[in-house]
Design a protein around this nucleic acid. Structure first.
Lengths: 223, 223
DNA sequence: TATTTATGTAACGAACTAGTCCCTAACATT
DNA sequence: AATGTTAGGGACTAGTTCGTTACATAAATA
């Protein structure tokens, strides 16, 4: 059999002439990709290193990572980094404060729905009392950016006279996220218990709008 | 050593003169108690039958249950039964509809906080896409009681003129539960990420009140 | 009294699983 | 080209874990 020189996407193809540094990055990204699927599907204890990939990839895992838990932390860190990156890109400057808040909330609902893997990883982490999250040093500082965005929005809303006084940005974030998160995290038990579908585009659009209604009703009502 | 006749709560004490039926119930209740702790702590895959209790209890488990999964289902069913039983006991008749709704919501927030084992079991079940829940036949019918209670409350609120028209009882339940549930389910990641405590009595009371504010603002606002 | 039901103790084995060892190939350096 | 370094393929292993079984015994029931 002659060696065929082809650039077709053969999964078994060995990418030749790649520097060690490139190969390293590619290998790690590949491992984290596959591991994310497995951990998201079965959790930390349920995931099987052997099934994350064939024996070949298994060998790579122990070459690049200390073990199952370090791999899990890598998966977790990347998922969190991606959320924070997406959050920073929502336009909160244009329109009224109420309009900007609605945009942010609807983004949140859609982001959670489109990224169930993040939701599942966070659920898992809470089952483990955040013990792996605590070992990732980089995270705490990044979280404050969300709170600062909300604090600005609250200040603007108050200045515009639409928001009532005394809204806590952390509490606002908690309430927004709870509604966006639960819709994904508990979709299976809720759908089964109450016979509703929560995944269709229609249901999602209605949900995003309703969550925004709820939060806005709360921040704008004056008693 | 003479046999001491004592009625002190000795864990090793054998309750004599118990019928087989009584012994059976007691043994099953004991197993489910211990298994609940283990499954709540570590999830289905993480739980270890050998560590649920000593060898004696292990022997009982396989005497009364088919295996790990049937035991897990028993744990799940009991936890769900207990929620539904508690929900049916809230007074929703006295006072205005708004007052009754507030009572129901605050009960919900407190119940979730006092029963983290339920929250964790439900999280687990969602990670498994509700596959074990679906095998429990008794549940779906029980869930409709909650919805009926809410439907009555909505009708009363509309009649009293305090609620706006068109509130869906399932959506109302979804929103209430989301806020009550998230507070417990995500307490570890949220507390770590934003440096807040969510478990103190003060924090819980404030939270219960705030969740009620949010839902009531939403059902009563008229635009 | 005889029989069934329940349960305490120990041990077992088949299947599984995280992690390791050896060896070869690909790349880097001189 | 020769030698060193990095990467990984395949098999193996040491340790778990679930589920079972054997055996003894005590209590409830017929």
């Amino acid at each position: 059999m002659p060696k065929a020189s082809s650039d077709a996407p053969d999964p078994k193809a060995k990418q030749p002439r790649r520097s060690h540094a490139e190969a390293r990055e590619a290998a790690i990204a590949q491992i984290v990709d596959i591991a994310t699927q497995e951990f998201v599907e079965k959790g930390l204890a349920g995931a099987r290193i052997d099934e994350i990939a064939g024996k070949a990839t298994k060998r790579k895992i122990y070459y690049y990572f200390e073990g199952k838990e370090e791999l899990y932390r890598a998966v977790l860190e990347r998922a969190y980094r991606q959320v924070r990156e997406s959050e920073a890109q929502v336009d909160i400057a244009s329109g009224t404060a109420v309009e900007a808040l609605r945009r942010l909330i609807e983004h949140d609902v859609h982001y959670h729905a489109r990224h169930p893997e993040l939701v599942r990883l966070v659920m898992n982490e809470n089952i483990h009392r955040a013990q792996h999250l605590k070992q990732i040093a980089a995270l705490p500082s990044r979280n404050h950016s969300v709170i600062e965005i909300l604090a600005q929005l609250i200040a603007r809303g108050e200045a515009e006279g639409s928001f009532r006084a005394g809204i806590d940005p952390v509490e606002l974030h908690l309430n927004m996220t709870a509604l966006a998160f639960y819709n994904v995290s508990n979709q299976f038990t809720f759908a089964h218990n109450f016979g509703v579908d929560m995944t269709s585009e229609t249901a999602l659009a209605r949900r995003a709008s309703q969550v925004a209604d709820i939060i806005i009703a709360w921040v704008t009502h004056k008693d």
